[in-house]
C-alpha cells in the first residue's frame, strides 16, 4: 500500500482550479464559525472545567464555594451601610441597590480581567491539545456565571428582608430629591433576558481580549490598572440621582455624561433596574444591543484573522 504520497507540488497552482482540491485556508470566516460551533458543542468539557475552576479555588476550605457568597454578603453589607449613611439614603433600598450593583460588577469586570487571561492561563492546554478556542472562553464565562449564581443567594436574602420597601411604588433610593422608582413588579422578569445579554457579551469580550492579550501582554495590565477607576466611575456605590440631586436646577447637566459614556453603566443598568424595581430605560438596551452587534462583528473578524495565531503567541 502506497502510504505517503507527495501531492502535486510540481504542478503550478492555479487559483481556484487545482484538480486535487484546494485546501481550506486558515484565515476564513468558516473556520472562525467552526471554532465557535465546535466550542459550544463541547459543553461537557467547558462546563466541567468551569466548575472545576470554582472547586479548585476553594479546595480544602470547609465552606468551599460558599465563600463567594459570604465575601459578597460582607462587602455588600458594609458598603451598603457606609454609603447609605454618606448619601443619607434609606438602607432598606440602598443596600439592595449596592448588592445587585456589586454582584453584576463582579461578573462584568470578571469578563474583562479573566477574559484577558483566558488563553494565557491555558497555554499548556492550547499547545498540547487541539480544542476550539471558544472552549476556553466558555470555560471563563461559565465560571463567572457560577460565581454570579452563588452571589445571587445574597440577593435572595436581601430581597426577602427588604421586599416591602422595594415593592413600594414610588420609593426613592435617596431621601432628598431621589427619582421615584416604580417598585418591584412583574417587569423584574426583564432580568432574565438581561442576564442572557450579559453572558452573550461576556463571550465576545473574553474571546476578543483573550486573543489580543496573547499577542500584547500589556492588555491584562491595562485592564488591571483601570479596573478600580472603572469601579468608582460606575454608579455602583453611588447612584445617578445623588448626582442629579446636587444640581437640582439642571438635573445634573453635563455631569450625566460621566456615566452615560461609560458602557459598564448600561450593562449594569439593564439587569439592576429590574432586579430592584428601578426605572427601566430602553436606551440602556439600545446601547447594549449596539455593543453586542459591533462587538461580535469585531470579534468574528479578529477570530478569522488571528484565531490560528493564538497557539503561536501563547
Amino acid at each position: 500500500m502506497h502510504t505517503i504520497s507527495t501531492l502535486t507540488s510540481d504542478q503550478p497552482e492555479e487559483p481556484g482550479a487545482v484538480p486535487s482540491g484546494r485546501l481550506p485556508a486558515s484565515r476564513s470566516f468558516r473556520r472562525a464559525f467552526d471554532d465557535l460551533r465546535a466550542g459550544v458543542a463541547a459543553r461537557e468539557l467547558w462546563s466541567h472545567l468551569g466548575w472545576q475552576d470554582i472547586k479548585q479555588r476553594y479546595r480544602r476550605s470547609v465552606l468551599g464555594p460558599l465563600w463567594i457568597t459570604i465575601s459578597m454578603a460582607v462587602t455588600a453589607f458594609a458598603l451598603g451601610l457606609l454609603y447609605s449613611q454618606l448619601f443619607q439614603a434609606d438602607i432598606a433600598t440602598f443596600l439592595p441597590y449596592i448588592t445587585v450593583g456589586l454582584i453584576t460588577w463582579h461578573f462584568l469586570i470578571g469578563c474583562l480581567q479573566e477574559g484577558s487571561n483566558a488563553f494565557i492561563e491555558n497555554e499548556d492546554m492550547i499547545k498540547h491539545l487541539p480544542a476550539p478556542l471558544t472552549v476556553y472562553a466558555l470555560r471563563t464565562v461559565w465560571r463567572l456565571m457560577i460565581m454570579f449564581v452563588h452571589n445571587l443567594i445574597v440577593y435572595a436574602v436581601i430581597l426577602a428582608i427588604f421586599f416591602p420597601a422595594l415593592a413600594q411604588p414610588g420609593y426613592t433610593i435617596i431621601e432628598e430629591g431621589g427619582i421615584p422608582q416604580p417598585g418591584l413588579n412583574v417587569t423584574a422578569l426583564m432580568a432574565f433576558p438581561a442576564f442572557g445579554a450579559l453572558a452573550l457579551n461576556g463571550l465576545w469580550v473574553v474571546l476578543l481580549l483573550g486573543i489580543t492579550s496573547t499577542r500584547f501582554r500589556d492588555v491584562p495590565q491595562v485592564i488591571a490598572a483601570i479596573s478600580s477607576l472603572l469601579f468608582f466611575m460606575t454608579p455602583i456605590v453611588w447612584s445617578i440621582d445623588i448626582l442629579a440631586a446636587k444640581f437640582p436646577e439642571t438635573g445634573g447637566g453635563w455631569r450625566q455624561y460621566l456615566y452615560e459614556f461609560n458602557p459598564v453603566y448600561h450593562f449594569l443598568e439593564i439587569i439592576r433596574a429590574p432586579m430592584i424595581g428601578n426605572v427601566q430605560s430602553l436606551h440602556h438596551w439600545f446601547v447594549v444591543g449596539g455593543f453586542t452587534v459591533v462587538g461580535w462583528l469585531l470579534t468574528i473578524v479578529v477570530m478569522r484573522n488571528y484565531r490560528s495565531r493564538v497557539s503561536y503567541w501563547v
Partner: peptide
C-alpha cells in the same frame, strides 16, 4: 502539532 491542528500553517495549507 501541525498534523493535530494545534498549529495551523503560517504559509501553505492543511486539512
Amino acid at each position: 502539532r501541525l498534523l493535530s491542528g494545534i498549529y495551523e500553517p503560517t504559509r501553505g495549507s492543511s486539512r
